[in-house]
């Protein structure tokens, strides 16, 4: 389990780096559009759709990492009144439900990507499947990370939650 956690930590790190690179590229694209239009009177038609696809990537990658690092907003008030063991069971139910949703993202996201395969995106000239790949990629990571949470809990290792300041120490 420790070595799996070690490997997944690196996967999460890589995903977060890619997402950060996506945000920076998006900044570059939109700045380029403003400069081109205002200074050179020449609009870039590809900057908007390209930035939207980049945004899709970094949202779903970032959201997947958020499951591992526990930074998704949740509502823990009811749980305060429960004993620790009950809490752990309910956390596992949550993680199972998130796993299920992640599987849905992969399966139905692929279905959407396949059905858009032949569609050519305007201004970019690439396949419409690219629109849906972020969901599939993010979904795969979500499944991985939420299953890791279940496994960690079973092995008695800590899992992170929203509002907790101490990060995972593995």
């Amino acid at each position: 389990m420790k070595s799996v956690a070690w490997a997944l930590r690196h996967v999460a790190r890589l995903a977060l780096w890619l997402a950060a690179a996506g945000l920076i590229m998006m900044t570059v694209f939109i700045t380029a559009q403003v400069v081109a239009r205002y200074i050179f009177n020449d609009s870039l038609v590809w900057s908007e759709p390209a930035a939207v696809i980049l945004m899709g990537w970094f949202i779903f990658l970032g959201a997947a990492v958020g499951i591992r690092e526990g930074y998704h907003l949740s509502f823990d008030v009811m749980l305060y009144f429960l004993p620790q063991s009950a809490k752990l069971w309910l956390y596992s139910v949550s993680d199972l439900v998130v796993t299920g949703f992640g599987v849905g993202m992969v399966w139905f996201g692929s279905q959407l990507a396949l059905s858009a395969w032949d569609v050519k995106l305007p201004s970019l000239g690439i396949s419409g499947a690219f629109d849906f790949l972020p969901i599939v990629g993010g979904g795969v990571l979500m499944v991985l990370f939420s299953m890791e949470r279940l496994a960690r809990r079973a092995a008695g290792m800590p899992t992170a939650r929203f509002g907790e300041t101490d990060p995972l120490e593995d």
Partner: peptide
């Protein structure tokens, strides 16, 4: 956001 419309504007000399 459509290739035909963008190309039409470019052909007319405008800035799509």
């Amino acid at each position: 956001q459509s290739d035909i419309f963008v190309d039409m504007m470019t052909a007319l000399g405008a800035n799509a």
